[in-house]
């Protein structure tokens, strides 16, 4: 076992992990942050996407020990006392979810898309950029609309 420490959603945290502990396991099991989901064992579904040092990564495909010293943001880090993050609100307003299993990963990927592509996103950009996030329910249509609307709302705020 070794000790890891990192910043998660602005708070310094530490914990004991095995070498093989995945970052997603550390978040869910050590820190109780169960908003980050696990939907596959092939690194393909994107339900586990979080930000590490400002970049989207699949937290099922990174070891907790590799995130030692890193700055991590999960879905739990987005809303504040004033309410939901504009991207979360856009998913709600546009019916961008049904069961919600893929949603945390979708929202975290969406924020990464905005970081790299700005606030005016066309449909084909969003579809291409969401290639690593799989949804079993919605058929993607409303997710794409939600990402476009959320991006716009973030630009306005």
């Amino acid at each position: 076992m070794s000790t890891v420490s990192m910043t998660v959603n602005g708070e310094a945290v530490c914990g004991e992990v095995e070498s093989r502990t995945l970052l997603v396991q550390f978040l869910r099991e050590n820190l109780g942050l169960t908003g980050t989901h696990v939907g596959c064992d092939t690194s393909q579904c994107g339900a586990c996407v979080i930000h590490v040092n400002g970049k989207s990564v699949k937290s099922c495909t990174m070891l907790a020990i590799q995130a030692d010293g890193a700055d991590v943001t999960t879905i739990e880090g987005l809303a504040n006392e004033a309410g939901l993050h504009p991207m979360q609100q856009a998913f709600m307003d546009n019916h961008g979810l049904q069961c919600g299993f893929c949603t945390p990963g979708m929202v975290m990927s969406a924020l990464d898309i905005v970081n790299r592509n700005g606030h005016e996103l066309d449909e084909s950009t969003v579809r291409k950029e969401l290639e690593g996030n799989i949804c079993r329910c919605t058929g993607y249509h409303n997710i794409v609309k939600a990402v476009q609307a959320g991006a716009k709302a973030m630009g306005g705020s």
């Binding site: 690194s43 994107g46 996407v49 970049k55 989207s56 990564v57 699949k58 495909t61 990174m62 990927s109 990464d112 898309i113 790299r116 950029e129 290639e131 690593g132 996030n133």
Partner: peptide, 9 residues
């Protein structure tokens, strides 16, 4: 290659 999260690692 792959998707944005894969390309970041």
């Amino acid at each position: 290659i792959g998707d944005p999260a894969v390309r970041n690692r």
